[in-house]
Nucleic acid binder design. Structure first.
Lengths: 205, 205
DNA sequence: CCTTTATATTAACAGTGAACATATTCTTTA
DNA sequence: TAAAGAATATGTTCACTGTTAATATAAAGG
């Protein structure tokens, strides 16, 4: 098996990426439930069965979309963590970036952390779980830098879990409107994120 | 009276309740996306268009299901809050009951707090929002009893929001498998809930 | 009695995901 | 250079879905 530059029979330049992009557009517009393979194919300018050459089925396309989302979230998180030297400020930025991501792509966020499609989450899709754990790493890293020594891996995991659970719940409530009237501007969101992280921090340390 | 008066033209005893029950069964089995009106009608033993006499459409049935879920959650929360006199223990019980509900009915929980069906949450359905705010009341009550006087309504709302966001995120992570390996038994869940509430409490007060 | 009203049913339409056989096009090989 | 092979895209088909329209049924009220 040798590495080929181009695959045989390829007519479209990069159909897989084009399909993902089209699916992303329709996702943020209509939501995951209403996303139809036919509409995506139509938007990409190919026939309705062409996507089946790149994705096993509708669920496969949604999984790829979710994985892509986790990937972007991971890079965002890593960038936010490395931008600040002070671990406390880094943690605040992590939380802020997280909520900002959820707010910027609400439907994608719901797809990532929601029921997936079968109703049991993505925990059978290895590609999604891999990206997911990757997006978890920066947080654990910052927590590790933050806690007073000596720190056990269990302590780090506990702290990261608490932080993640809180920010995740905050994002979910932001999206579904429970918190929408309380946080209108981006600055208010940043302030809320900062305050909340402070609260959690005081409790954990 | 056990049986209400039969309305004109009524052939089925209480079709609306029967449909809701059937829908609940199929919901926990297949998830919200795969729930079809036809299957629900089939399970209830009526024709496929009979549900349209009791619900506007599929979304209406799902909304009724979500509202019923919030109603049950509200009664659970109220019972848990009134069972304990000590506000701190009451808060712990609230969180425990919340996560227990999410764990016991994961698909219903996702339906309640997820995208609904249109992708914008339920915040246009008044029936759902009413039940939702009702399930929020016990928590705010306990927070009010817990905070040192004098307390402003804003403080109470902030505290309740932080608690709710955290428990909500915890429940979501419990359901989608992110926390499944860490919390197997019900006792472990109770312990985690207790610890977390303590952390939050130390931060808020 | 007859009319009204809510209920339930059958029939039909349009759109969906998926499976199949088939045609096209490019890479590899002889 | 030309044939072989494989990946890709297509049209068609099937079972299923949500929804609407028209129709039949049963109870309530005159």
């Amino acid at each position: 098996m040798a590495t080929r530059k181009r695959r045989p029979g390829e007519k479209h330049g990069d159909l897989k990426a084009a399909l993902l992009q089209a699916a992303g557009k329709r996702l943020e517009q209509d939501g995951p439930e209403k996303l139809s393979l036919r509409a995506v194919a139509r938007l990409a300018g190919v026939s309705q069965t062409a996507p089946y050459n790149h994705f096993a089925n509708r669920e496969g396309l949604l999984a790829a979309l979710a994985a892509q989302g986790f990937e972007r979230l991971a890079t965002n998180q890593a960038a936010a963590a490395q931008a600040n030297d002070d671990p406390r400020i880094a943690l605040e930025c992590l939380g802020y970036e997280y909520t900002r991501f959820a707010r910027g792509h609400p439907k994608l966020y719901r797809l990532m952390f929601g029921a997936g499609v079968g109703g049991e989450g993505w925990h059978d899709d290895e590609l999604v779980t891999a990206s997911k754990s990757r997006s978890f790493a920066p947080l654990r890293d910052v927590i590790c830098r933050l806690l007073p020594e000596p720190v056990s891996p269990e302590q780090v995991d506990n702290g990261a879990m608490v932080c993640w659970a809180f920010v995740h719940g905050l994002s979910a409530m932001l999206i579904d409107g429970t918190l929408a009237d309380r946080v209108e501007s981006d600055d208010a969101l940043a302030e809320l994120s900062r305050q909340s992280i402070a609260i959690i921090l005081d409790g954990v340390t």
